Structure formats: C-alpha cells, structure tokens
Amino acid sequence: MSLMMDRLLPLALLTCTLVNSGPANAAEPDPDQIAQVSVINALMLGQFDGTLPLGELLKLGDFGLGTFDHLDGELIALDGKIYQARSDGTVHECGPEMTTPFAVVTPFNRDVTVPCPPVGSLEQLEQVLATLLPQENVFVAIRVDAKFASISLRAVGRQEPPYRPLTEVVAHQSEWTRENLNGTLVGIRCPKWVTGISVPGYHWHFLSADHKVGGHVFDCRIESGTISFDRCKTWVVKLNDSLGAGGKDLSQDLSKELNKVERQRGTTEK
C-alpha cells in the first residue's frame, strides 16, 4: 500500500495520514479532515467484523456513512448522531458501543450552501454537482436537504461467518422506494485515485426528516431543496490489526466489483 500511496499523493491537494485503529484522539478533529475506518477492498473481500466503536467514530466526524458490525445495515451519521437503516426497512438511532468495519466521516463545516434545482434522477443531481465542484482531486462531503418526489434505497442484511464477498451479499439485499417525503442525502465524493482504498466518485446514503426511512441510495427525484458542501483537505485512514486477515490480497483491482456493488439492485422489496 505504501508504494501505491507514494504514487498517488503528488496528485492530491491534501494530506494523508495512516494510523493504527484505537481510541480516537480526544482533541477536536481538524475541521477540514475526512476520516476513514479500514479500506474498501477489505470490506469487498468479506471483512465485516466491526473494529471501531461508534462513540469513537463520532470523535472523528459528525457527518458521513458506512456500515456496521456483521454488515448489519447502512450507517448514516448526521448532525452528530448515527442511525442504522436495516434490511427490514426500519431505522434506529445507535448507541456508542456498536462498532463499524468501514465508515467515512467528517466534522461537517459548510463551505457553500446553494439552492438545489428540481432533478429527475440521482445522475442529474451528480451532473449539477459536477458544475459546482469541478475540483475532482479532492474529497468533498455533500449534504442535500430536500423534498423528494421519490427515493429508491437499499440495505444489506446482517451476515454471519464465514463471510462471503460483498458482491455475493448484495445480490440478496433489500430495496424499497418511498414517495413524497422530506429528508437529507448524506454524500461523500472521493477522487478517482482512491481505488482500492475508498469508494471513488459519489457514495450516497439517505435519512428522512422523521428518521423513519433510510438506506443506501440508488436513485431519487428532487422537487426542491438546498445543497451544502464541505471540501476536505486532510485524509485520515484508520487501520487495524486484522487488516488482511486470512491472507487476502488487498492490493488486487476490485474496481469492477465495487461498481457492481454500488449499482446492483437487490431481490427483495420492502
């Protein structure tokens, strides 16, 4: 991984720090920092055991997304609280003792807030964002508070060892569509050069205003709202002693499989 990072860092207008997983620093995090737990290739290959308590995760940031121990649902960090959108369609506020195997969070500080125009799809929203955020080599946290004509979501169910690769798990995920509700898109846009370490491009989770609907976002139609974004200049990746357990090669190119995971539809409707 060190050789990969040596090649990539000159391309980025940020600082990257790799640290061993453990108790988070009690000091306030850098307001321009984005912090990540583990690496995406580990999750892709089935490392679903939680490594960092959510209480420690919130010390790194109050806004972001990820998953839970045993891959039990979609993690949404919003306004300093963490919510779990489960595969049965329910949403629960989480306690600090729960753990995550993979998450990306930041202390959200708005750089800019602009009106969100009506959009007919998630793809159209990302086209709007491309004009607002042309700097493709930096990390950006994006918050969209809006009235949604519809939103299509998914959540993965709890897994038990021996864990299967993520591509096999998401083939049986639950998905659902809801109409006419208010809520928030929690988005992270990572540079393309993070392949194998994080999720390149946009990654979206959603939480409704009443905290009853949430999940990973497939698509949406927005009637009106606001877009706020926070450019992040420091990238912190928290590693743990179990990284690469079982002799799995984390350096392999899993970009095609990851793209399938991000876009693949499930087999169960809620």
Results as ranks from 00 to 15, higher is better:
His203Ile: 07
Asn182Pro: 01
Lys238Trp: 13
Trp176Asn: 10
Asp253Trp: 02
Asn240Asp: 13
Asn259Met: 04
Lys238Cys: 09
Ala209Ser: 14
Phe229Pro: 05
Val217His: 05
Asp241Trp: 11
Leu258Cys: 00
Ala149Lys: 15
Ser228Asn: 04
Pro161Phe: 00
Ala171Val: 08
Val156Arg: 09
Asp249Val: 00
Asp210Cys: 10
Thr184Asp: 00
Ala149His: 14
Asn240Leu: 02
Ala149Val: 10
Pro165Phe: 07
Ile227Lys: 08
Val199Gln: 00
Asp219Tyr: 13
Ile188Glu: 10
Val169Ala: 04
Pro162Gly: 00
Gly225Lys: 09
Cys190Thr: 14
Ala171Met: 06
Trp235His: 05
Cys232Val: 00
Phe148Tyr: 07
Arg158Gly: 06
Gly247Met: 00
Gly196Trp: 03
Val144Leu: 09
Gln173Lys: 15
Tyr163Ser: 00
Asn180Pro: 03
Ala141Ile: 02
Thr177Ala: 07
His203Tyr: 10
Ile151Met: 05
Val156Asp: 03
Ile151Tyr: 01
Lys238Gly: 06
Ala209Lys: 12
Ala209Glu: 14
Leu254Trp: 04
Glu160Ile: 01
Lys256Leu: 15
Trp176Phe: 12
Ser150Cys: 02
Ser198Cys: 05
Arg164Tyr: 01
Arg189Asp: 06
Arg158Gln: 08
Leu254Lys: 03
Gly246Glu: 01
Arg221Thr: 13
Ser224Leu: 14
Ile197Ala: 14
Gly201Lys: 11
Ser174Ile: 04
His172Thr: 11
Ser208Leu: 12
Gly196His: 06
His211Arg: 15
His205Val: 15
Asp230Thr: 04
Ile197Pro: 04
Val144Cys: 10
Asn180Ile: 07
Trp176Asp: 08
Asp145Gly: 06
Ile222Ala: 04
Gly157Ile: 05
His216Met: 02
Lys260Arg: 13
Ala155His: 07
Trp176Val: 10
Ala141Asp: 07
Leu207Ala: 06
Arg178Ala: 14
Ala141Met: 07
Ala209Arg: 12
His211Gly: 03
Val186Asp: 05
Leu239Glu: 08
Val186Gln: 12
Gly201Trp: 14
Gly244Gln: 02
Asp210Val: 03
His211Phe: 14
Asp253Ser: 00
Leu207Lys: 11
Arg178Leu: 12
Gly214Lys: 12
Lys248Val: 06
Leu153Met: 02
Arg158Leu: 06
Asn259Thr: 02
Trp193Arg: 12
Leu181Phe: 08
Asn182Cys: 14
Leu207Trp: 12
Ala171Asp: 03
Phe206Thr: 10
Asp145His: 07
Leu153Gly: 03
Val213Glu: 15
Asp230Tyr: 11
Asp145Ser: 01
Ser208Trp: 10
Leu243Phe: 01
Glu223Thr: 12
